[in-house]
């Protein structure tokens, strides 16, 4: 599904700002990959680079989705191919209601694929179903997008978008940060209910605790812009117990 080959990326317009220093990763269809790492390891950058955030510049390597390079594509084009990024800090957008914005997103996708737009009636039905499924307060989605939402409500709103857009590859960028256990469980339930042989996930997280609820197929440890270790779900438990120190020291020695 997704293949990352020797990916190098820097911050746009800043010299010597390389953050990703040769990432190699393959995510198969239906797989859940966790990317763990200490602060500043580049894991959040990786999530954003995959989605095409304009703040980063890819300097080497390639990323392919179903065999086609996506690096030249705009974020909206990547979304149309089925990619989705759940944000660590979802933007607050005054005056824009979630309903309106998700309809625009689906319309734009349909248009790019030469399909008919969903009728307002059908979309409303779908939207209401998903609002209920995610357990988001219906009054909340009548307000401006994320404006005045609590941290948990914002994440729940990200799950709502995930449910409505039904992506083929969902990337969760530290979705667990700032969440209490209940909210964490909601996010995990959202992801688990959407797991299918057709859908892949990349779960970026600092802590192991989210992985108590979402069992990954593969765990990668990212340190200083490189994947230093790959293993099964038990690798996350090791990190929880021992921390990142040994990887940092090893990476330091190699630097």
């Amino acid at each position: 599904m997704l293949e990352i080959n020797n990916l190098h990326a820097s911050v746009v317009d800043i010299e010597n700002s390389e953050i990703l220093k040769g990432i190699n990763l393959k995510v198969g269809k239906g797989e859940v990959h966790a990317i763990m790492g200490p602060n500043g390891s580049g894991k959040s950058t990786l999530a954003n680079v995959l989605m095409g955030r304009p703040d980063y510049l890819v300097t080497d390597g390639d990323v392919t989705l179903e065999g086609e390079s996506i690096l030249e594509l705009r974020p909206d084009q990547r979304a149309h191919l089925g990619m989705f990024l759940a944000f660590q800090y979802p933007a607050e957008i005054p005056g824009v209601r979630p309903w309106q914005f998700l309809k625009a997103a689906l319309d734009s996708k349909a248009e790019s694929r030469g399909e008919d737009k969903m009728s307002v009636r059908n979309f409303s039905k779908l939207f209401d179903e998903k609002v209920e499924a995610v357990g988001i307060n219906p009054n909340l989605v009548k307000r401006s997008l994320n404006e005045g939402f609590s941290g948990g409500e914002k994440k729940r709103n990200e799950m709502l978008q995930l449910e409505v857009l039904q992506p083929a590859l969902a990337i969760l960028d530290e979705t667990d940060s700032g969440l209490d256990v209940d909210a964490l469980r909601i996010v995990a339930e959202g992801v688990n209910s959407m797991r299918s042989p057709e859908r892949s996930f990349i779960v970026v997280t600092h802590y192991q605790r989210l992985l108590n609820y979402i069992t990954p197929d593969v765990v990668h440890i990212l340190v200083k812009g490189k994947i230093v270790k790959t293993g099964g779900a038990d690798l996350a438990l090791e990190v929880e117990k021992d921390g990142y120190q040994e990887y940092l020291e090893a990476a330091g020695a190699n630097a």
């Binding site: 989605m51 095409g52 955030r53 304009p54 703040d55 705009r74 974020p75 909206d76 990547r78 979304a79 149309h80 989705f84 990024l85 944000f87 979802p90 933007a91 957008i93 005054p94 005056g95 824009v96 309106q100 914005f101 998700l102 625009a104 997103a105 689906l106 734009s108 996708k109 790019s112 401006s144 978008q161 857009l165």
Partner: peptide, 28 residues
């Protein structure tokens, strides 16, 4: 630009995203 990226990442193209943001500004 972060807000714009947020909308784009959901599949809304740049022009439509800008229109949504401008409209949102006027909404209240």
């Amino acid at each position: 630009k972060d807000t714009l990226f947020y909308l784009q990442s959901r599949g809304v193209d740049e022009e439509a995203a800008k229109a949504i943001l401008v409209r949102g500004f006027a909404e209240e």
